[in-house]
Design a binder for these strands. Structure first.
Length: 529
RNA sequence: GCACCGUUCGUCUAGGGGUUAGGACGUAUCCCUUUCACGGAUAAAACACGGGUUCGAUUCCCGUACGGUGUACCA
């Protein structure tokens, strides 16, 4: 008997876990607010929700949390939709797909929240408050002056202007007269709130540290706290998987579930670690991307007000599969040494238990490496296609056949498709200048002599000009002049590319073609003589 | 300030009462390659600190430090 009692606290997590294991269908939601482009951290939250849902054979829901009309940004919702689609995160229910719990936009569910706010009012869990924002601000200032922090809570609520302190007739009169008011939650004075977070374990918070949060704003819209609890209940959400920034308000939400009588079907919580700045302190922000020259948004975004453009991973040349793989492993690991995961593999291996607790610094180098891995895994045809798209953007014309050859030659030398055009520009135009160091080191009279013979031989060649024929003709020229290849190859490369690096030389010759090769050799001989 | 969460190589992380503390990115060197990559090999590189508990702690407990988040009629 005592044995059991002593060990009971240790079992608490197990009990919670058992409840989580009950056969309640898994329904998760990703709930962004359309206040701007979706941050990469938000993408990861969406991803984890998606993986968790698919793994459990559950449902992935997207809900737009647009209860703040002041922060609404046109285009943001469409941006969210496009970002998720680009990454391959499929939605089962959403404002765009519909579903049994529509509408999925909180601004369209106003009446619902009003109803539950009234319920809380009637049950004594909430009250009307008439304090103006100015009054509250003044209050905060006053407290700050005496080195205290103002909290609208059990200690102060009886000194404020609300339905707890004002006579009922006065309250009715104020409401009837149309003065703005909010509805606040009457946080219990002394209550211990415990819950089991699927990532963090047991969390205990005293209700005294939670203030009387606003539930309904004076514009008739609910705050996040009320709206998310009501919607999660109504939409039958089984697991709330969200960022760590919500951890401090989770106890409030639990109190709300209790007050509404919904504790039995309350979802399980899992608070994800944050994505941190690559260096220094704080969470990853848009500034970091600008500062270090990388994207923190999935897609390019143009601020409709300022016209300012923020770069996106897509436009920077990342493949969605690579981004997803990178993001998935930032805060989660499979427990094996596997690094490369397709979406299907991620779904098969994902679990919240293996999500780490600590925030992860965002390292763009790893993202780049992932992209390289995925580029290497692409078929030549696919890479050629992507190259053609990229060339098109820069108004460079190229045949599919040539693009295919270039793709094959460059595949293992790049991390991004666009690098083919920047680092191997010579495929598309003759070099304008020759790298000075390479000229002094590698250009010589012997090379000049051989290359002249070589060019003549090519000119007379009547059949198809392949890498093999190029090689043969060069060997003939070398033999004729009695010069070793080592003296000529770098010089030939210089003539063709203007520099010293790049793919196989004979491939370059073949890809550039017979006429262009001759032209470049002649130009180099003339210019470097 | 208060509340909550966290802390293993520079970074992402594995591990877990006794390990040569493992992998990956990045860095360096070497091999392959007439170049550049790819690939292969090697190297440098970590348990924040202080107390407990224990035969033994990086691992468990408690403090401290540091970091993060929250503390809005924002989400």
């Amino acid at each position: 008997m005592s044995y059991l009692w002593v060990h009971l606290p240790n079992f608490a997590p197990c009990f919670s876990y058992l409840r989580y294991m009950t056969d309640r269908p898994v329904r998760v939601r990703f709930a962004p607010s359309p206040t701007g482009p979706l941050h990469i951290g938000g993408m990861r939250t969406a991803l984890y929700n998606y993986l968790f849902a698919r793994r459990a054979g559950g449902t992935m829901i997207l809900r737009i949390e647009d209860t703040d009309q002041n922060r609404f940004v046109p285009g943001a919702e469409e941006y969210i939709r496009e970002s998720l689609a680009w990454c391959g995160i499929q939605l089962d229910e959403s404002p765009w797909h519909g579903g049994p719990h529509a509408p999925y936009r909180q601004s369209e569910r106003k009446a619902v929240y009003e109803q539950y706010a009234q319920q809380l009012l009637h049950s004594g869990h909430a009250y009307y408050a008439f304090d103006t924002p100015e009054e509250l601000e003044a209050m905060r200032e006053r407290f700050k002056a005496s080195k205290n922090e103002f909290q609208y809570n059990a200690a102060s609520r009886m000194h404020m202007r609300n339905s707890l302190t004002l006579p009922a007739e006065e309250v009715a009169r104020l409401i009837a007269s149309g003065v703005p008011y909010v509805i606040r939650f009457k946080t219990p004075l002394k209550e211990e709130i415990r819950f089991y977070d699927l990532i963090r374990g047991n969390v205990v918070v005293q209700s005294a540290t939670i203030d009387d949060k606003v539930l309904m704003k004076s514009d008739g819209m609910p705050t996040y706290h009320l709206a998310n609890v009501v919607d999660d209940y109504l939409m039958n959400i089984s697991h709330v998987i969200r960022g760590e920034e919500w951890l401090p308000s989770a106890p409030l939400h639990i109190l709300l579930y209790r007050a509404l009588g919904w504790e039995a079907t309350m979802p399980q919580f899992a608070h994800l670690p944050l994505l941190l700045k690559p260096e220094g302190e704080g969470k990853l922000s848009k500034r970091d991307g600008d500062k270090h020259g990388f994207a923190v948004f999935p897609l390019q975004w143009k601020n409709p007000e300022t016209g300012e453009v923020s770069r996106g991973f897509r436009e920077d040349g990342y493949l969605p599969e690579a981004l997803i793989n990178f993001l998935a492993l930032l805060g989660w690991n499979p427990g094996t040494e596997q690094e490369i995961f397709s979406m299907e593999q991620l779904i098969a291996s994902f679990s919240l238990e293996r999500v780490s607790k600590a925030g992860a610094r965002f390292d763009i180098h790893k993202a780049k490496w992932y992209n390289q891995q995925y580029i290497k895994a692409l078929s030549d045809e696919k890479l050629a296609e992507l190259l053609l798209q990229e060339l098109d953007k820069q108004a460079i014309s190229c045949s599919f056949e040539k693009a295919l050859l270039i793709a094959r030659a460059m595949k293992e030398r790049i991390s991004f498709v666009h690098e083919i055009i920047t680092t191997a520009k010579f495929f598309f135009e003759a070099p304008h200048t020759y790298d000075a160091e390479t000229v002094t080191k590698k250009w010589n009279k012997d090379a000049e002599k051989v290359l002249t013979i070589f060019a003549e031989k090519i000119e007379h060649w009547q059949e198809e000009f392949t890498a093999t024929t190029a090689k043969n003709l060069l060997n003939e020229a070398l033999a004729a002049a009695g010069v070793k290849p080592g003296l000529v190859m770098p010089a030939l490369r210089l003539a063709m590319t203007g520099s010293s690096g790049g793919p196989d030389l004979m491939d370059i010759l073949a890809i550039c073609g017979k006429d262009e090769t001759v032209r470049r050799i002649q130009a180099a001989v003339k210019q470097l003589a």
